[in-house]
Structure formats: C-alpha cells, structure tokens
C-alpha cells in the first residue's frame, strides 16, 4: 500500500542557517544592556559600638578639616598646629610616622566641610599606608 511508504517531507535536522543571526541578535542585546560594575572606593573598618580605647596623647596626630578645606595638623602632646592643603597630608603623615611608628591619625571633620576634603585627607593617609585612622565629626 502506497500510503504506508510515504516519506515525510519535514527535515529531521535543526535548521542552522539562522544561527548566526540569532547569535548577532543576542550579542547586540547584551552589548546594549551590559553595565560594568563600579564597586570601588576607600575601605575603612568602623569601630564596633561602645568600643573605646584609651590612647596616649603622645601617639595621636590630630588632623582637623575646616569648612574652607584647610587642614590643621597637631601632635597630641603639642600645642602647635600647622596648616596644610588636603593633598599635602600624605607627605605630612610620612614625616610624622617616621618619628613615631605607633602614630594614630585622628581625623576630625567640621560638620560643614565638604565630603571631598575628608576623602582627600583619607586618600593621602591611605596612600601613605596609614592603618590606624579614626574618623570623627568636629563641633560646628
């Protein structure tokens, strides 16, 4: 009987001619939607709450950031304050830490000072490999 032997005209292979087109379509989709993550910055570790450590004034370098961007630097055991620009802090820290390796940076920022100045000072300290940094807010 002829009906039983009739062969199917449908191909049993997946058509591959449009594969490249599909790939291009997907490629364009991913090209357009891709956003490379921008997860970077200056890391710090905050002290846990109620974690207060008494430090000798001798080992503190008080760094005061004023609203106009000037930075006052004073050793804990001294009354003399010198003024600098934020990007000079790296050099200041290197000089001070050479004299006292146990030095801690106590950064006190005025509440009205721009965040940018605090970042510039923190940047300088981190560039100079300062590890012990305390961030506080000064009195307005």
């Amino acid at each position: 009987m002829a009906i039983l032997k009739k062969q199917s005209k449908v191909s049993d292979e997946i058509p591959s001619a449009s594969m490249a087109d599909i790939a291009f379509l997907l490629l364009i989709f991913f090209l357009v939607t891709t956003v490379f993550p921008k997860d970077r910055g200056l890391p710090i570790v905050l002290p846990e709450e109620q974690e207060e450590v008494e430090i000798s004034q001798r080992n503190i370098l008080h760094i005061t950031i004023n609203p106009d961007g000037t930075v006052g630097v004073r050793r804990g055991d001294s009354q003399n304050e010198s003024f600098h620009r934020p990007h000079q802090i790296q050099q200041v820290w290197r000089t001070e830490v050479a004299q006292n390796p146990n030095l801690i940076a106590g950064v006190r920022t005025h509440p009205d000072a721009a965040h940018r100045y605090m970042i510039q000072v923190l940047d300088g300290l981190q560039m100079a490999n300062a590890e012990r940094i305390s961030l506080q807010m000064g009195e307005g």
Partner: peptide, 11 residues
C-alpha cells in the same frame, strides 16, 4: 548602630 563595620567610601 546596625552593627555593620565595613564601609567603603565610593570614589
């Protein structure tokens, strides 16, 4: 206050 300690100032 939330107990977290790792902060990164995005720059």
């Amino acid at each position: 206050q939330a107990g977290a300690i790792y902060v990164v100032f995005a720059t």
